[in-house]
């Protein structure tokens, strides 16, 4: 989006390191204080989510923010499990997410590789579209896509209909492309001289070295469908097809509260389960997921 920084090679360098200038005395405690206050503000809701998911009866008093043995139970998890068919919802979320991941990895890596290392007519305009597309808000596409996919093609309550609009994550394609551009040409030379086809070169040479880019792509792509609410909400009418985000939202807004003894606890329990996979994936990949990649994905 900013022309000034476009096309700047973004090598997979280590996480941003501080410039080596001397620190003014007294500044370090100030920095740490600011960061600590912010970290508490960012993390407290997560902590509170877990505390709430373990309460027998919702306790919103200040004392209730600290778990108390007499008010602690695992019942909220089993209640919400029976109320929203947790297993089935997780399965739906899983199929939706894995479908998107597979399409993005297969077709996205091919497109990213071609955009970086192959010459073909229309390459530069495709690269421009790739960047423009990331600025198109999905919400604008929701209505025509709903008309087409649900009404015209009859793909409501269908995994295909759920996956289609997210199938290839453009930001991931861009991250792949940026990575492949930086691989020295010599790495591909020998394989090509030996007569390997481009698909072999991609599979044997490019993909093995692109692991950090692929991990970033997986994380970026994963959080899209796993966290998405609006689209699967529109596509599903059948409760058995709802991904977890939709089941939880419907439970919250329709107040099927009468079904369980402690609705707040149940909602918190489902929220914890919905949050865990993305959070764990992020913490595991964090090392690879440097600011450089986000930078590359956004700057265009």
């Amino acid at each position: 989006m900013t022309a000034s920084v476009a096309e700047r090679p973004t090598a997979p360098r280590s996480p941003a390191t501080a410039p080596g200038r001397p620190e003014r005395a007294g500044l370090r405690p100030a920095r740490l204080a600011v960061l600590l206050v912010a970290a508490v503000a960012f993390l407290f809701p997560f902590y509170y989510m877990i505390v709430g998911s373990l309460q027998k009866t919702p306790d919103s008093t200040i004392a209730g923010a600290v778990p108390h043995p007499s008010n602690t139970t695992g019942a909220d998890y089993s209640q919400i499990d029976s109320a929203i068919h947790l297993g089935r919802s997780l399965l739906n979320s899983g199929i939706f997410t894995i479908g998107v991941l597979l399409c993005t990895l297969v077709f996205g890596l091919m497109a990213g590789y071609a955009l970086a290392r192959l010459r073909f007519a229309g390459r530069s305009s495709l690269l421009t579209s790739l960047i423009l597309v990331q600025a198109v808000p999905f919400q604008l596409l929701v209505l025509p896509l709903y008309v087409l996919i649900v009404r015209d093609y009859g793909l409501g309550d269908n995994y295909l209909g759920m996956i289609l609009p997210f199938a290839i994550n453009s930001t991931a394609v861009f991250v792949f492309r940026q990575f492949f551009v930086q691989i020295p040409a010599e790495m591909f030379e020998q394989a090509r001289i030996d007569g390997a086809g481009e698909l072999t070169v991609l599979w044997r040479i490019a993909i093995p070295v692109a692991r950090p880019a692929i991990l970033t792509g997986v994380l970026l792509t994963f959080i899209g469908p796993w966290n998405e609410f609006l689209w699967p909400f529109l596509v599903t009418k059948d409760q058995n097809m709802e991904p977890l985000a939709v089941s939880l939202a419907n439970f919250t807004s329709n107040l099927q509260a009468t079904l369980v003894a402690n609705p707040t606890g149940g909602i918190m329990a489902a929220a914890v389960i919905l949050a865990i996979p993305a959070v764990v994936l992020f913490l595991v990949f964090q090392r690879h997921f440097t600011s450089t990649h986000i930078d590359a994905g956004v700057k265009g």
């Binding site: 809701p45 997560f46 509170y48 989510m49 709430g52 994380l219 959080i223 796993w226 966290n227 609410f229 985000a245 939880l248 939202a249 919250t252 909602i267 918190m268 489902a270 929220a271 914890v272 919905l274 949050a275 993305a278 959070v279 994936l281 992020f282």
Partner: peptide, 11 residues
């Protein structure tokens, strides 16, 4: 990285 739906619930 966390779903809006989950965070909205805590908020």
């Amino acid at each position: 990285v966390t779903a809006s739906v989950a965070l909205v619930a805590v908020w």
